[in-house]
Structures are given as C-alpha cells and as structure tokens.
C-alpha cells in the first residue's frame, strides 16, 4: 500500500500526519518528497551518513567550434533554455528539462549531453521503523520533479509506504502522488484551508486516486466548513487532530506528538484500517 499525504495549502500538517502515521504502524517506509523543504527527518530523528546519492540532470553542453548558429536548437526548445547571442550559443541549465531534443535536432553534433547535480537522496541509517528516505533539491534549482522521481525509485515493495508530498497542486505534488493507492488530504478548518483543499480534491479526482480528509487544528465551531464540503464531495473525513497548544509546541520542538500522547497511536492505526477499507471499496467499485 502506498499512501501519499497531500495538501493544497502549505503548513496544514502534512509532515505531522505522515510522520506520526509512519511511527504508529509496523513495517513502514516513509519517503519525504517535499524536496524543496524536507522536514520529516526532524521528527523521525534521522541519522544520515555522509554518503548520499546524487540526483543528476542532463543538459546540453556546447562545442562552440562546431556550432554554425543555425538556431534549430533554439527554436526547438520549448523552455527557452537555449539562446543565440550573435553567433554565440548559450544554454541555461536551470530551466532545461533534459528532454534531449536540442541534441537530436543539431545538424553538426555541436551539442552533447552533460550532467549536473540538482539534488540529493539521503537514507536514515538507524535501522529503526520507519525506514526513512528523503529527497533534497539544491539551492537555486527550479525543477523538483526529477528528485521526487528518483526518491520514489527507493520504494519498498514489502512495506507500507507513506509519502510526504509538497503543498500545492502542480507538478511536484503530482509527481509525489502518481501511482499511489491512496491520498490523505490534510487541511485546516479555515477559509484558506477549505479553498486549497478544493484544489487538492480536484487534483486527486483527475488522477483517479481514492482519497480521504484529515482536519488538523480542528475546532468544533469551524469544522463544519470542511465537513460539509467533504460530504458534498463524497469524501470520508478520516481523522481530526485538535487545535491544541501542546501539540503545536511539540511540533515546534520537532517531536511527533504520538510520542508524548501514545493514545494517539491507536487512532493512527485505526486511520490506516479505515484507509484500507476505502481502498478496498474503490477497487470493488472498479471491478
């Protein structure tokens, strides 16, 4: 089972949910795919070694002496990653998508494929549960997707995989959610939370992945905002985590709250059981 934890809005509690869920279950693997700002490691207390795996992106390298300034590569590139300044060909590797098209169209073989590191993948060495991996995008790099794709190649076949995704509903979030069995949408009962939840719901519907909702910072007087919407969309409201200064304080210190409030572990295990139910139902409906 692969569960991706998502939210439209940032800071709603994805990492709180992902880490506490991973810690409450047995035989889990946690992947931090919020590669622009990875934080799960703080809560898992990950022990990284000096060794890490590079995420390599390819980009064109120019041999100016062979370039005849024909512009074919510049015109082919959909991302404006190449430009011709007089007779001088320039490449902007940060915005290159590594499609290889420019190399393909160059009539004089003036372009070859070079490599550049854009991020790293690290693994926790502690041997505790959950098994933990994180991706990290290097500073100044624009495209998080290749880091997420490479991180996901480390998915364990024999474990429950939990993926902590980036906020939003564009390419990096989708890259994290693709091929998941279930998406957990974490929101908060505020107008912002509701507005952004709608985008996340739209996204999982387009992807065709079953989903359910968690209200974080739940407050009885405001939860109706989310509950009514969830009902109108036919989505299960799976868990509420209260608006509680103690939980916020533990979060601030990087402590998963299930550690200090162990009664919550049973709730997260129940959450998992409910997810299995929803996934099973969705599979039955498909057949």
């Amino acid at each position: 089972m692969i569960i991706t934890v998502l939210s439209g809005k940032g800071g709603t509690g994805k990492t709180t949910v992902a880490t506490n869920l991973a810690l409450s279950l047995a035989n889990t693997q946690l992947l931090d795919a919020d590669v622009e700002e990875p934080n799960s490691a703080i809560f898992i207390n990950a022990e990284f070694s000096d060794r890490s795996e590079a995420v390599i992106k390819t980009n064109p390298v120019i041999e100016q002496s062979k370039c005849i300034a024909c512009r074919q590569c510049v015109e082919f590139c959909q991302y404006n990653a190449l430009a011709l300044l007089g007779k001088q060909l320039l490449v902007f590797p940060e915005i290159c998508h590594s499609c290889g098209g420019c190399i393909m169209v160059c009539p004089t073989a003036a372009l070859t494929e070079g490599e550049r590191e854009i991020g790293r993948i690290r693994a926790d060495q502690s041997n505790r549960n959950p098994e933990f991996w994180q991706g990290e995008l290097n500073i100044g790099e624009e495209t998080a997707v290749p880091v997420i794709v490479q991180l996901k190649q480390h998915r364990a076949e024999d474990k429950t995989v939990i993926i902590d995704a980036q906020p939003g509903s564009s390419c990096p979030t989708i890259a994290a959610a693709l091929d998941s069995d279930f998406c957990l949408l974490v929101t908060e009962p505020t107008p912002f939370g509701l507005n952004d939840l709608k985008m996340a719901v739209e996204m999982v519907k387009e992807l065709g992945i079953p989903a359910g909702i968690i209200i974080n910072r739940s407050e009885e007087e405001y939860d109706y905002l989310i509950a009514e919407y969830a009902q109108s969309e036919g989505l299960a409201l799976l868990l509420k985590i209260p608006f509680d200064r103690e939980i916020a304080f533990l979060y601030s210190k990087g402590i998963p709250f299930t550690e200090n409030q162990p009664e919550w572990r049973a709730k997260f295990r129940q959450l998992y059981a409910n997810i299995e139910g929803v996934v099973q139902n969705a599979a039955d409906n498909r057949n």
Partner: peptide, 10 residues
C-alpha cells in the same frame, strides 16, 4: 509568494 524554493518561488 508561494511556499518552497523551486520554480514559482524563483
């Protein structure tokens, strides 16, 4: 702006 450090932020 948006959260993160990637393309929309840049």
């Amino acid at each position: 702006g948006s959260p993160g450090i990637g393309c929309p932020v840049i």
